[in-house]
């Protein structure tokens, strides 16, 4: 039994079916990257998993327990264990860095203040923002904001981390500082689902890669298989296109 079991997941946005039967099984501690052409449903899958665009059909099991996306309690339980980092960082603009990281554990989980602040300090040090606790998001560069967003997502010690194109909005010279942080996290054994266009990074950190096209997963396998010996034609086409340059 995997850490996360996705079966026959469907999701529509308005009249459009974005996800058409997604099946994917992710083991504990795995780093699974989703690749595929834009519009293939990678981001929607992540948003769907965390309940922002609830699935229309299909099941998602977390540790063998099915998530009921229509039930508030079940959704809260899910979000206690799963965190997401967005492309646009989405830090709370009205809170400083430290507050962004501590607000959920303090105010929502009502955890001990001393412990929360200690964890937050450690996390911010780890992502290299240790000297900017009092800064507001609009005073930081994109790369810095994204690293704070990662620290915020980790503050509740999630078991699963979803990373939704976290480097796509960054200036090229800022991409590596964020990738370094993520690379560091993969050593922790936290389960990760990554949507990224940084193919060499995907190749390097992923335990498995899932190729998505037209709303479903067409091929899953270790990076060597997907990038060097893809079995599906669509994977071959896509990989051929992106690796040519």
């Amino acid at each position: 039994m995997g850490h996360l079991e996705i079966r026959n997941l469907h999701c529509s946005y308005g009249a459009d079916d974005i996800l058409k039967s997604v099946d994917l099984s992710v083991d504990r501690g795995e780093v699974v990257s989703l690749i595929g052409p834009s519009g293939s449903g990678k981001s929607t899958l992540l948003r769907s998993l965390i309940g922002l665009t609830p699935p229309r059909m299909g099941t998602v099991e977390l540790d063998g327990e099915e998530i009921n996306y229509r039930n508030r309690q079940s959704l809260r339980h899910l979000r206690d264990k799963m965190a997401i980092v967005f492309q646009q960082y989405n830090l709370f603009q009205n809170m400083n860095v430290f507050r962004n990281v501590t607000v959920a554990p303090l105010k929502i989980k009502k955890r001990d203040k001393g412990a929360v602040e200690k964890t937050a300090t450690e996390l911010l040090d780890r992502v290299g923002i240790g000297d900017k606790h009092q800064a507001y998001p609009d005073e930081l560069s994109g790369g810095q904001q994204q690293r704070v967003a990662i620290a915020r997502a980790l503050a509740l010690a999630p078991e699963i981390l979803l990373l939704d194109e976290v480097t796509s909005a960054l200036d090229p010279e800022r991409v590596n500082e964020v990738l370094d942080v993520i690379r560091d996290l993969t050593r922790d054994g936290i389960t990760m689902l990554i949507v990224s266009h940084e193919m060499s990074f995907v190749k390097e950190v992923s335990t498995r890669v899932a190729m998505m096209d037209a709303g479903s997963v067409v091929e899953v396998g270790p990076p060597e298989q997907i990038f060097d010996a893809p079995k599906e034609q669509r994977t071959r086409d896509f990989v051929g296109k992106i690796l040519r340059h």
Partner: peptide, 22 residues
């Protein structure tokens, strides 16, 4: 921006908390 609400939602903010704090 709507994303501010999504951020709060995935951190398990109640709608009231999202309104008051974000």
């Amino acid at each position: 921006p709507r994303q501010q609400m999504e951020s709060a939602e995935v951190l398990n903010f109640h709608p009231g908390q999202t309104l008051a704090w974000v």
